[in-house]
Nucleic acid binder design. Sequence first.
RNA 1: GCCGAUGUGGCUCAGGGGUAGAGCACGCCCUUGGUAAGGGCGAGAUCGUGAGUUCGAUUCUCACCAUCGGCACCA
Length: 656
Amino acid sequence: MASVRITLPDNSIKSFDQSPTILQVAESIGPGLAKNCVGGCINGSKDIIDLRTPLSDGDRLEIVTSNSEKGREVLRHSAAHIMAHAVQELFKNVKVTIGPVVDDGFYYDFDPETQLTLNDLQKIEDRMYEIIQRNLPLMKEVWPSDKAIKVFAEMGESYKAEIISDLKTSEVSIYKQGTWFDLCRGPHVQSTGQVKAVKVMSIAGAYWRGDQKNKQLQRVYATAFYDKKELKEHLGNLEEAKKRDHRKIGKEQGLFMFHDWAPGMPFFTAKGTVIYNELANYIRELYRKYDYKEVITPQLYDSNLFITSGHYGHYKDNMYFSEVGENKTEVGVKPMNCPGHCLLFDSEKHSYRDLPYRMADFGRLHRYEASGALAGLTRVRSMSQDDAHIFCTDEQLQSEMEGFMTFLKEVYSALGMYEYKVFIATRPASRMGSDDLWDRAEGALTGAMDKLGVPYQINPGDGAFYGPKIEVHFVDAMKRTWQLGTIQVDYNLPKNFNLSYTGDDNTEHTPVVLHRAILGTLERFIGIYIEQCAGKFPLWLSPTQAVIMNVTDRQTEYCLELKKKLIAQGLRVEYDNRNEKLGYKIREAQLQQMPYMLIIGDKEMEQGCVSVRLRSGEMINFIPTDEFINKVVGEFKTRQLTSVFENANSTKEISH
RNA sequence: GCCGAUGUGGCUCAGGGGUAGAGCACGCCCUUGGUAAGGGCGAGAUCGUGAGUUCGAUUCUCACCAUCGGCACCA
């Protein structure tokens, strides 16, 4: 008698008379496992398959439970069905579309006859819990596509019918819970009762199939967890994340602001400007090391420049224009530095010996971004980048990519920013240049990353029409991803400007232009960085590095002397001599995340020293002033990420 | 740009058809106090802008502007 043997992760083997489903295997192991089972992975695959799937002899099975990372996906996918079910029970004439799992939750797009409102969110959630209570088993059925299209069309579910006909498969799977059913690939939980904790989060507009030309649907965001405790934890994390929102910290620390009369254009305060300039100067310092030459170029140009560059054709809607003079000459505000750099490059005759020519520019750029796109410092209309354009030969592509990435890694490591993802965007459908050219360019990009051992993902078809690019992405506090560093190959611009260099064969050649930025847009970088460090800037970036606090006004003179000394060493220091108690001054400095609080009382004055409080709460009392200065200046000048006093012996108690 | 929400002293927020209220911040006074808020007094707002309804609008309606959450965009 043939038996079906299934291998489990611990290499034990279970035998069955007939092909068991994943759930049946779970049941054979134990009731607890069966209860939590939401699917399985077979033969080392990472894809979860439905627990109703029959297995074959020799399969290796890993059972996925609802309290696991993978299981959560199944849970949420089923929760999306529960949500659609709830919405359709609650409201008449709501068409369903799709409801995928996303980071931290899921959403479902609806096309309701009357708009859902915020008040409906709680109703939806309540009804979801009701459906969960009903503990409806989820049944999988396979229908011929024609039948499915017919059934959904008759129900008025035009979106579903459209999806199925676009699938172009002969049959589709349907999941039923009670009388409600949905087209779905699965996998799904056993019954609605397996979903224990849900939360309907928000509502938003979203275009059908992500296309602006289509109807705008209503997207309801929600999340689901294994239990209420996990859900509570998640909601707590969201609250915590909001606290590090750069817009909030920027306001609290007085770093930047916005005004209605210049939407999307940040004003950096004196404090914020310190951060801005420290970052730019750090990059400037590295420009010497990496052989870049910084230039300054105009802000406004005759429109002819942008006609030549091609921006007038492709980017006009995102540009600011004006007319000047009696002749009403049209001028454009530069949205990018590259056209200006081309003029500069072209102003001299170049030899191949000059290449690669790396031209850097912190020039201010203005882009008329869509109003709905603006977001704090992360998406602005007025910005400056640590921008540079590298004019090089085709052969130099890969080594320039390597140089760029090495530069980038140095900067991000120095800033303690390791949580980034590297993407290589390859040729889009509509593009310029031969396949041969693209092969070489993409090869240079992947080759460089491989050589440096940088992990990356390919974004097929995501490149610009003029060349492929590397993008470095970071995530903000609210888990939105933003591009910071980038390097893009451009074969188009040098042609438009008719750029050339003389090769070793004494003929003229067209250089390649690489657009690149390490920090990317400084505004955006600062926004992301504020969130990464939660407002606790390393000393070298801190607008104010130390606050001197006197205990009584007997120390005033000593404090003023100390302030002078510190300033002479290039430190940014304030003296809080207000008529307030020490605890009050400390609280305030602490809320500002002040790196060093220097407490001066009679003791310190007598001994010629300072008592230091770190923002961590650590205290190092009675350090000779010179010792403190030496250490702190070192920390500042070498751009340390953490305090030189952190975890230092802070044993001494205050003696009265 | 699209869908939705929001817009009240510098900040965080309450209120509501009869021209506004709290806490913090700010100013003055008392307090000289040793590691996250000492006490008292005071000043500060035509309630985003414009129009409409009304005897009367900050409150209701509409339009616009800005911000927030998404979507689209991000050559």
